[in-house]
Measured scan of single mutants.
Amino acid sequence: KELVLALYDYQEKSPREVTMKKGDILTLLNSTNKDWWKVEVADRQGFVPAAYVKKL
């Protein structure tokens, strides 16, 4: 499975999103959308801005 690194803190703004902290390592589930990537963090799945994460 592919992992991404959170480059910035992100606070979810809708139930479809997830909160992450800078430095978090997240499991990447889907990166087909260039703006929003689906990730899993702490047993929750949701979207984060693609610009806020980097593939490892």
Rank of each mutant, 00 (worst) to 15 (best):
L3C: 11
E2F: 12
K54P: 01
K13C: 11
V4F: 05
P15W: 09
N33V: 05
W37P: 00
L7N: 03
Q45R: 12
K55N: 07
T19K: 04
P49Y: 03
V4D: 00
R44P: 00
L28N: 00
S31L: 05
L7G: 02
N30W: 08
A50P: 04
K13W: 05
K55V: 12
W37Q: 00
S31M: 09
M20G: 01
L7R: 05
K21A: 09
K55M: 11
L26F: 06
T32R: 11
S31W: 10
Q11H: 13
L7I: 10
K34A: 13
L29Q: 04
K22I: 06
F47W: 15
G23I: 01
I25C: 07
D35L: 14
A6R: 01
L3H: 09
V53K: 00
N30C: 12
D9E: 06
D24F: 06
L26C: 09
K22D: 02
A51S: 14
E40C: 12
R16C: 15
K38T: 08
L3A: 06
D24C: 08
F47I: 07
E17R: 05
K54D: 07
T32E: 14
N30F: 07
D43T: 10
F47C: 11
Y52I: 07
G23Y: 05
W37L: 04
V41L: 15
G46L: 05
S31I: 06
Q45A: 13
Q45E: 11
A50V: 07
R44H: 07
L5G: 02
E12K: 14
G23D: 06
A6L: 02
T32K: 12
T27M: 12
L5F: 09
Y8T: 08
V48Q: 00
Y8N: 08
P15L: 10
T32A: 13
A51V: 10
T32V: 10
G23W: 07
L3T: 09
I25F: 06
F47V: 08
A6F: 02
K13E: 08
D9M: 04
Q11D: 14
Y8E: 10
V18A: 06
S31Q: 10
P49L: 05
A50K: 06
R44M: 06
P15S: 12
L29H: 06
T19Y: 04
Q11I: 15
N30D: 15
V39P: 00
K55I: 14
K38G: 05
L56T: 06
V41H: 15
E17D: 06
K55Y: 10
K1Y: 14
R44E: 05
G46S: 02
K34T: 11
N33L: 10
E17W: 04
S14K: 08
D9Y: 04
V48G: 01
E40V: 11
L29F: 04
K55C: 10
K13F: 05
L56K: 04
F47H: 05
D43C: 13
P15Q: 10
K34H: 12
E12H: 09
K22W: 03
V18D: 00
I25T: 07
L56D: 03
I25M: 06
V39Q: 00
V39N: 00
W36N: 02
L29C: 07
S31Y: 08
T19D: 04
T19S: 15
L28Y: 02
Y52R: 06
D43G: 15
V53L: 15
K55L: 14
S14P: 04
S31G: 13
F47R: 03
K1A: 11
Y8P: 01
